[in-house]
């Protein structure tokens, strides 16, 4: 255990997504800084935009920031003045771009799975998707009426879930940008996390050596499990093995009958707010490749 001090005030603290050895923080009048967790020293400090026409410094207020999922060098920041900023640690001028994308503060941010775009939530309940190269607006997700505190993208499927002060969990389809479902949870909500379901699927596959295709298809139909990790593991142990589901007469291709697009159970996943499982990048790549294989076979 090491203890060290971070400059205040702080709005968010994040850990980098690859080896969890770096810690980043930012806040009101406190620009983005990165610390090494083992030594406790400040490794990196972000630069501000150049002064304006009157040579006055531009005010700083970082509301939320996230690391890119594929590297521990790039950080994306949403400011309270509606700016979207991208920092690269490798460069000498580390502020790559900064653009005013909204009139209101960017309260919550997540990087999409493909690292090409960013989902950003407003203080009045609007969610937008911005391109990461130029900050271009790629569309909005409508329906919420209170400030958004957290957004998260599903590790495998095309869904985005958000949570906020209007006491609702809302799930959107990322392709059509339409609301998929919502849940009333009585409290003002601060954060949410998806379970790393895709990771578990792969672990099971390696153990029992079941054909990956049939099992991943099945997994969508099975019920998702409640808060605790133990429950999750127990449930996965009790799951029917793929051979039981498909009798011998049928080929694996006919298993596509069992696969349905009904993801209504996804709502339960979002309640796992306290869970802290980090999602491994390697697994994700494998899953995406598996999904592609499926599509080819179906065609």
């Amino acid at each position: 255990m090491t203890a060290f001090q971070i400059k205040e005030p702080i709005s968010q603290i994040r850990v980098d997504s690859i080896d969890q050895k770096l810690l980043s923080s930012g806040g009101n009048d406190n620009i983005l800084k990165v610390y090494d967790i083992e030594t406790g020293k400040c490794v990196f400090e972000g630069q501000n935009e150049p002064n304006d026409e009157l040579d006055l410094p531009i005010p700083i207020w970082d509301r939320d920031h996230k690391w890119k999922t594929d590297s521990n060098q790039v950080i994306i920041v949403g400011t309270s003045y509606g700016d979207l900023r991208l920092y690269d640690r490798r460069l000498e001028n580390n502020l790559v771009f900064s653009k005013k994308v909204l009139k209101r503060p960017l309260n919550a941010i997540t990087v999409s799975r493909d690292n090409q775009s960013v989902y950003a939530g407003d203080t009045t309940g609007d969610i937008f998707r911005f391109d990461l190269r130029r900050g271009k607006n790629l569309g909005s997700f409508k329906g919420a009426s209170g400030s958004i505190r957290a957004i998260e993208e599903h590790p495998v499927l095309d869904f985005v879930a958000c949570v906020g002060l209007d006491r609702f969990v809302r799930i959107y389809d990322t392709v059509s940008r339409l609301p998929h479902s919502k849940l009333y949870l009585k409290q003002q909500l601060n954060s949410l996390l998806f379970t790393s379901q895709g990771k578990l699927i792969l672990e099971e596959n390696q153990k029992e050596k079941i054909s990956s295709k049939s099992f991943s298809k099945n997994s969508h139909n099975n019920k998702t499990v409640d808060n605790l990790d133990k429950d999750l593991e127990d449930a996965w142990d009790n799951l029917p093995i793929a051979d039981d589901v498909f009798p011998e007469g049928e080929s694996s291709d006919s298993g596509s009958v069992h696969f349905s697009d009904d993801f209504s159970n996804d709502e339960n996943e979002d309640e796992n707010e306290n869970e802290n499982e980090n999602y491994n990048l390697e697994d994700e790549n494998e899953i995406s490749s598996l999904d592609e294989d499926e599509n080819e076979n179906d065609n």
Binding site: W61, S80, R104, P105, N107, T123, T124, G125, K142, S145, G146, S147, L165, D166, Q188
Partner: peptide
Amino acid sequence: QLGTFDYFHGEYIYYHKSLL
């Protein structure tokens, strides 16, 4: 609004829009 009056930086519990 959550907290005392802050038009720009404040967070809204409910914000009426015509979309609603």
